[in-house]
Design a protein around this nucleic acid. Structure first.
Length: 562
RNA sequence: UGGGCUAUCGUUCAAUUGGCAGGACGAUGGAUUCUGACUCCGUUAAUCUAGGUUCGAGUCCUAGUAGCCCAGCCA
């Protein structure tokens, strides 16, 4: 059993429960310090959002602080572009890291001095073996490693060598600084881990000042400690590194930050590893980091997700130590729940079929005033034109309807939302038998959508006036992968083999005129269809909408069953 | 006989430390409805296995089983 299980308070996740217990034992809540420490080598995804919400959330709840720290110790992978992108994403998610941004690279001088201290204390040495030899002598998971022939160099010798490393006298890969711990440790991480390596590479912040760079295991704990991080929260794969984290701070005599691990997020139908996301972007399987099919923060943002929905999602998935994979339906639930509250509701037809209302006067147009959201009158209203020729959704008509179908069919009466009742008199067909046009009549007494005799209709359809319809491009998205877990493919297959060829469908919508007024980033509900977000690709005269998520559709389920 | 970690409804997170296994999502039935949406009500369904301790075990003990992480000069 893990020691984390002790002293839990019920209902809370194990981390917050442990903090409660620590406070009970005297911890001053205002000293609680967390940090979100991304490496700027890619953009953030929803898995990071979980960590961000956890770290910033805990700081806010307990009256502590959370730092944003860029873990920028490997210059070959990192860039300012990513630093800026990450800050933008964290801010968009709604979190504030205060006036100071932290960088591990700001601690390079301190880290160097700390390394010299370890050398002087006989706890670190310069190893001149090749990377290959270091690998070979590390041992295996079941066998101990062998000591390096350079392990017993004197502190003076090591110090001189280390200073020459820093001075740039050695080529990349020829020397490393290693901690002198135990080559026989059952924990492979403790077998004389590398602390510093040589990299003659330009760093995005320190430029060419350094040619040696500290490793994660050395720099992360020291940076935590310098920031007085009390709760260093990271994902489960760092469990094995905790022993080295503690060793380093102890041997340096520094503030004892403590690491706690939790399970990272896995989400059905997508990948959440930076390596794979980078591959999807660079090899053009998607249009970019902000492709609306991607689980990146900017992808979700462009798709039309809101920060509120993502934060709600993070709260609902919880925090635990067990590996898990979350149902995509939960994310969709969260965005629907928020968009349902905030979106105006308008009408657009995605797959039109024409209706001619034969008893409606030719050339007549009526403008109906319709509420933008009947559940929230404060949203106001808009004007919608009605005329003799209309479009409705092709799915809303059936020649030979099954019993449970209560939309339009020959002889059937339905309501056109907020307008009139219409009855289908005839369905015109082409040679192939496809329905091309519906001939209907309307009941003038049903104006506004009700009748004096109070008769009921089963169906209410959305519609647009053909002559007033505004066309727009609509992008319909499906999951990017066909498998729930694209990371777990059969032998010989990779996650790329699971890419869904139909993850994007582009179509043309016929919209009521008011919809043309919405600018990029606006989110609306297309009644009876789903939530849509105006895309940044929108140009004058050519709107582009992304489908954020469809409405729940119990009729579609019914059809599927049949 | 390498070490570390994990195991509860289909999914996910709980269970006041040994006292009626609960919530959410999903699924499903119904009510309501000018969105087959929303909302409301109901139903469904779980303690990895085998022993043991105990009046009582998800929780403690013993032995198993399954899964995840670690052999980067990545983080």
């Amino acid at each position: 059993m893990s020691s984390e299980a002790e002293n839990k308070t019920p209902g809370k996740d194990f981390i917050r429960a442990k903090i409660d217990a620590q406070i009970k034992e005297g911890l001053d809540a205002s000293t609680i310090q967390t940090r979100f420490p991304p490496e700027p080598n890619g953009y953030l995804h929803i898995g990071h959002a979980k960590s961000i919400c956890l770290n910033f959330g805990i700081a806010a709840e307990y009256g502590g602080k959370c730092n944003l720290r860029f873990d920028d110790t490997n210059p070959v992978k990192e860039s300012t572009e990513y630093v800026n992108g990450i800050m933008e994403d964290v801010r968009w998610l709604g979190f504030d890291w205060g006036p100071k941004v932290f960088y591990t690279s700001d601690n390079f001088d301190f880290l160097y001095e700390a390394a010299e201290k370890l050398i002087l204390a006989g706890k670190a040495y310069v190893d001149s073996q090749s990377a290959d030899d270091i690998h070979k002598t590390r041992g295996t998971l079941t066998e101990p490693g062998k000591n390096s022939p350079y392990r017993d160099r004197t502190p003076e010798e090591n110090l001189a060598l280390f200073r020459r490393m820093r001075a740039g006298e050695f080529a990349d890969g020829t020397q490393v600084l290693r901690a002198k711990i135990d080559m026989a440790s059952p924990n492979v991480v403790m077998r004389d881990p590398v602390l510093y390596r040589i990299r003659h590479t330009h760093h995005h912040r320190t430029g060419d000042k350094w040619v040696i760079y500290p490793m994660y295991d050395f720099s992360h704990c020291v940076s935590d400690s310098l920031e007085h991080v009390t709760h260093s929260l990271c994902s489960l794969e760092f469990e094995n590194n905790r022993e080295l984290y503690d060793w380093t701070l102890e041997n340096l005599g520094m503030f004892p930050s403590k690491q706690t691990e939790f399970a990272r997020l896995n989400l059905d139908g997508t990948v959440l590893s930076k390596r794979k996301l980078i591959q999807l972007v660079t090899e053009k399987y998607v249009s970019g980091w902000d492709d609306p099919r991607l689980p990146t923060i900017r992808g979700l943002r462009r798709r039309g997700y809101t920060p509120e929905a993502i934060r709600e999602f993070a709260a609902r998935i919880g925090v635990a130590r067990a590996d898990s994979r979350v149902d995509y339906a939960l994310l969709e639930f969260c965005i629907r729940e928020h968009l349902n509250r905030i979106c105006p509701r308008l009408m657009a037809v995605l797959d039109p079929i024409k209706i001619t209302v034969e008893n409606y006067p030719e050339g007549q147009v009526e403008w109906f005033d319709m509420p933008l959201n009947p559940e929230d009158p404060a949203m106001g209203s808009r004007k919608v034109p009605f005329s003799r020729e209309l479009y409705i959704e092709r799915d809303d008509f059936m020649l030979e309807p099954p019993s449970k179908f209560f939309r339009l069919a020959p002889g059937r009466e339905v309501r056109l939302r907020y307008a009139y009742y219409i009855t289908c008199k005839d369905a015109r067909r082409d040679e192939a038998g496809n329905v091309t046009e519906l001939i209907c009549t309307y009941d003038p007494d049903s104006k506004g959508g009700g009748t004096p005799d109070g008769r009921k209709v089963k169906g209410t359809l959305h519609w647009v006036s053909a002559q007033h319809a505004v066309k727009a491009e609509v992008r319909l998205y499906d999951r990017l992968f066909t498998q729930d877990d694209p990371d777990d493919m059969p032998a010989g297959k990779t996650f790329l083999d699971a890419i869904n060829a139909d993850s994007l469908k582009v179509t043309e919508a016929y919209m009521e005129p008011a919809l043309a007024g919405y600018k990029p980033d606006s989110r609306v509900q297309f009644e009876r269809i789903g939530y849509f977000c105006v895309d940044k690709d929108t140009a004058p005269g050519r709107q582009v909408f992304n489908r954020v998520v469809g409405l729940k559709d119990s009729w579609a389920k019914e059809v599927k069953k049949a």
